[in-house]
């Protein structure tokens, strides 16, 4: 029997924290896919972003004499962007310039990113706690990330607890604003229109005077970095700065699934992210048995499959993936 505890504040907060993580990943992947590249390396890039943030925070915490929250955040973000940017850069060079198969490159990048992140995490653990260090903790930086306005979060009752919870930090709101900005970017700006054209029909974009290669590179880099922020957000806000082996779980794959669920629309991905977030954590709040838990964990994927079936059946042109998704572009092809 499933006992229901999902009408609790802690469930809502867990949903938001997981959802925002997915939202970052989804926005990043959406931008990349709009450029015509299916980046299955997103899970790896999110791991790289997560461990980058830990690494930056760890370096700062071990070297700073006077802990300054702002500098800690900067340092963590810098390394997060560096690491996820590195992952995105590998993918961009391989798939855009060298025209390697996108799926193979992406899957390899995920294997590489997850492996490297776990390796670095283990090494940091050993540095911090000696031989048997199984985890590494950057509590102070995590606290800095989750700073909050006491009055708004604590004095406004349920409203504050739900919408300005003390564990949200500033990145939660950054993600939501980012989703709106990405929406405006694709709907209202010329660069957004050009990027859409690159992913739909690079031949046409090229003929219209758009530098296809440049657009692809920038989209892959920016998208990768945004996805990397998701990794940072997860370890700092949800895991409270504690890194363990495989810390991010399957968040990256869920983010990729969310792109399909949201039909490449940033605004839709906001509520989609919360839905997926809720489905991911539901098993913790339903007192389900182990086998029931496993079934609950697959719900987001099941929902994605249903969305795929529905959109494939209705064939609305606007709901289909970018037309040249996964294809290479050569110019002087004869």
């Amino acid at each position: 029997m499933l006992a229901i505890e999902i009408f609790s504040v802690s469930f809502f907060v867990a949903m938001v924290l997981n959802g925002i993580t997915l939202l970052f990943g989804c926005l990043g992947e959406t931008i990349i896919e709009k450029a015509g590249h299916l980046n299955l390396g997103i899970p790896g890039i999110m791991y790289l972003g997560g461990i980058g943030a830990i690494l930056g925070a760890f370096i700062y915490e071990s070297n700073a004499t006077n802990f300054n929250g702002f500098l800690a955040i900067l340092c963590a973000l810098f390394f997060c962007i560096l690491m996820s940017g590195l992952g995105a850069c590998i993918y961009a060079v391989l798939t855009v310039s060298l025209r390697a198969n996108q799926n193979v490159t992406g899957l390899a990048l995920t294997t590489f990113g997850v492996g490297l992140a776990n390796f670095l995490g283990g090494s940091l653990g050993k540095l911090a706690q000696g031989g048997s260090g199984l985890f590494v903790s950057v509590k102070e930086t995590s606290d800095a990330f989750t700073f909050y306005i006491p009055w708004l979060s604590e004095k406004t009752g349920l409203f504050g607890k739900l919408f300005f919870n003390s564990s949200y930090g500033f990145l939660t709101f950054v993600a939501l604003i980012l989703a709106v900005l990405v929406h405006i970017f694709f709907k209202k700006t010329s660069i957004g229109l050009n990027l859409k054209a690159v992913g739909e029909n690079p031949q046409a974009a090229d003929a219209a005077g758009i530098n296809v290669t440049k657009y692809k590179y920038v989209a892959i880099m920016v998208g990768g970095i945004i996805a990397g922020l998701g990794g940072c957000y997860f370890v700092m806000n949800y895991l409270k700065g504690v890194w363990q082996h495989g810390a991010l779980g399957d968040a990256g794959w869920l983010a990729v699934a969310l792109v399909i669920f949201s039909l490449w629309r940033p605004l839709r991905s906001i509520w989609g992210a919360f839905l997926f977030g809720a489905l991911t954590v539901a098993y913790n709040y339903l007192h389900a048995s182990t086998s029931q838990q496993e079934i609950l964990k697959m719900l987001p994927y099941l929902v994605t499959i249903i969305v795929l079936i529905v959109t494939s059946l209705n064939k609305r042109r606007e709901d289909q993936p970018p037309r040249s998704l996964g294809l290479h572009y050569f110019r002087e092809e004869r």
């Binding site: 229109l193 054209a197 031949q203 005077g209 042109r317 037309r323």
Partner: peptide
């Protein structure tokens, strides 16, 4: 072979890349 983006409107195709 027309160099047009299917998903976009006529006007969007016209101003594509003009920035």
């Amino acid at each position: 072979h027309f160099k047009l983006v299917d998903l976009l409107t006529a006007a969007e195709n016209v101003i594509l890349g003009l920035n």
